[in-house]
Design a protein around this nucleic acid. Structure first.
Lengths: 251, 251
DNA sequence: CCCAATTTGTTCGTATGTATA
DNA sequence: TTATACATACGAACAAATTGG
């Protein structure tokens, strides 16, 4: 599905030009055309292709940068944001040591299974209960200490060809694998947190005492247009760590 | 301390003009000159006063709007953001019903006392242990159900003249009171969440069973230049509610 | 109800500075 | 050094929302 950048025509709804430009860019980004290390065409070229002024194009790109979908680098170009370890840690991983030290977690794969969506996962993923799914369990450790027990559920249709081996041998983060191997870019996530008492599995995986209070984080990871692509329930020991709410825009 | 808007002069560090403009605007905002319902001078006027072009001024204002310090309204003007109930609910209150219904909480004042800063509060507020402080306890209910038990600690120096009566008779949110009565504008907050077992006080205030798991949220509320002005520990029952992490920039 | 004044929102164009390869 | 890319800054014109007469 190759989209082409053509001169923009006014919208029925009367949307401003820069939003039309944003939509056009987003469609091109979704098509995967600019994935990887190659930069987008320069602002001059993009503006010319879309038949708009450079200022208007910049307005569109500004918004995509604010949404962390694009990254601009002066002198180099504009790129589709990739899921490097840094981005994972700072945008999607919200657990850090109580003294404030942030660190990338070490991940251990505990299980990989094919299953069916239960009601909760189905609702979160906007699919039907019983649809084919892949369930993955991970243990995340910080400074050698087990801290998070993750259970991921993925719609099988979106991740055809995903095997335990591929998951195990990925060179970078899971979201980076989604992006490079399946063309699925996670752009943001919704998380809801509650306190529960640790169940047997959590006790075993995290080594906490039965009955201790742990955090349960329910995450829906979204790609473009807020389409859900992953459902994840994380159990977090907060004996020596905290869940940190994403901070507001930087000064 | 009345600051004046005068033509900008280049910076020693070579900072861009729009950042100098932003700093100048921020200083004027902090001085309290534009607090309340009155709009800022129009963009044309501000640009003229600062001796810069309208585009450059808009760049500066754009950033302040992104940081939720200013609010623009087409046809009306630009205003200093106020702590209305809406802003409180959407920017600073992170608890909502598990089914996703967001609602403004009803607040009950439980206690109001003068005390001294303990080590933890002192560190969070960047003050010395033993400094004079005011401690306030609140119970927040949603749909008539007690959900949050808040304990606030305020440095007494910043809130001279704060009495139980004034707190009780405030017409709007607590942050609105800070803003209007003490000239303290909370612009953002840092929160760290952990799971704990409810202590006696929490059980009594929230009516939960002893030993149940509850959330503990530690918040440092910040004003301009990230200066801490309030330390708050909230205990949240998540039997029927969730703590929702602030969502990324909207599409 | 419409008109006029005011204010922000959008769009265009141009020139120059700064970082990178 | 040179070319290219984004960053900053200026100015102008018109559109859209709001307010008050």
């Amino acid at each position: 599905m190759e989209t082409t950048l053509v001169p923009l025509r006014p919208d029925a709804a009367g949307a401003p030009l820069y939003r039309l430009a944003k939509r056009a860019l987003l469609a091109a980004i979704e098509s995967g055309r600019w994935r990887g290390a190659t930069a987008l065409p320069s602002e001059t070229v993009l503006a010319a292709r879309l038949g708009i002024s450079i200022g208007t194009l910049r307005h569109a790109v500004d918004e995509l940068v604010a949404e962390r979908i694009l990254v601009r680098r002066q002198g180099r170009g504009t790129f589709v944001a990739t899921h490097t370890t840094e981005r994972f840690v700072f945008q999607f991983f919200h657990v850090e040591r109580s003294d404030g030290v942030r660190d990338a977690p070490q991940v251990e794969l505990l299980s990989f299974e094919r299953e069916r969506l239960d009601d909760e996962a189905a609702e979160a993923l906007q699919r039907r209960p019983g649809d084919a799914a892949i369930a993955v369990e991970n243990r995340l450790s910080l400074q050698g200490r087990p801290v998070v027990y993750d259970r991921l559920v993925l719609p099988a249709v979106l991740f055809r060809g995903l095997t335990e081996k591929r998951l195990r041998e990925r060179p970078s983060t899971i979201y980076h694998l989604y992006q490079t191997a399946f063309g699925i870019t996670v752009v943001r996530a919704r998380e809801r947190v509650r306190a529960v008492t640790a169940d047997r599995t959590a006790c075993r995986v995290l080594g906490v005492a039965p009955g201790s209070a742990v955090l349960q984080v329910r995450r829906t990871a979204l790609t473009f247009h807020d389409k859900p692509v992953e459902w994840r329930v994380s159990t977090v020991t907060t004996a020596q760590h905290d869940y940190v709410s994403t901070l507001a825009p930087a000064a």
